[in-house]
């Protein structure tokens, strides 16, 4: 299948090329393409040239399997299980390799600091790329989980902007349990 090229223009007027199949990973882009109002270049005023290549990288990886190939693989496995067990095992193996490879890719892909995470999350939200939004939101949640408010602030480089009174009356002051806790 020969793929049409789509051109995306970042907020700072830089143009990037992407295959149509890859672009379809984004609901927003898919709607524009299917709507037929494709006018050469799609302007993305909310995505900068720093982050757009990162988005395109994700789409390239996931544009092809946008539901279809995964479904065929899974459905095929279940249906053919009784009829073709040998073939099935092979298929299972291949599927496992594919999933492992994808996990490894995601791990490497998601290795960036919180500023990129922020921009990427907003881009995924704006472009309606569900998989990417899930990935970024999960990363943000993992930077919050099991941490005290102080540690969370450090992770996201947020300054506490509570007033001194609010700080004093802080909703929650936490101490991790230690044996030195004294009861009098």
């Amino acid at each position: 299948m020969s793929s049409t090229k789509i051109f995306l223009k970042s907020s700072d007027d830089k143009t990037f090329e992407i295959d149509e199949t890859a672009a379809r990973a984004s609901e927003t882009l898919k709607n524009i393409i299917d709507g037929g109002c494709l006018d050469g270049v799609i302007p993305l005023p909310n995505v900068s040239s720093n982050i757009l290549p990162k988005v395109i990288e994700y789409c390239k990886k996931h544009g092809g399997d946008n539901g279809s190939s995964k479904k065929i693989a899974n459905g095929g496995v279940d249906k053919d299980k009784e009829i073709l067990p040998d073939y099935d095992e092979e298929e299972d193996k291949r599927e496992k390799v594919r999933v492992d490879e994808l996990k490894k890719w995601e791990e490497e892909y998601m290795d960036f600091d919180q500023q990129v995470l922020y921009d990427l999350m907003l881009a995924a939200n704006y472009l309606h790329i569900k998989g990417l939004l899930d990935l970024t939101v999960e990363k943000a949640a993992s930077m919050i989980r099991g941490r005290t408010p102080d540690q969370i602030r450090e992770n996201f480089n947020i300054n506490s902007d509570f007033t001194p009174e609010e700080e004093e009356e802080m909703i929650l002051i936490e101490d991790e349990w230690d044996d030195e806790w004294a009861f009098d």
């Binding site: 919050i144 099991g146 969370i152 506490s160 909703i171 929650l172």
Partner: peptide, 13 residues
């Protein structure tokens, strides 16, 4: 964790 989230800054609260 939601409590902690809400204790980070005014807007998150």
């Amino acid at each position: 964790e939601k409590f902690r989230f809400a204790s980070v800054c005014v807007t998150w609260r």
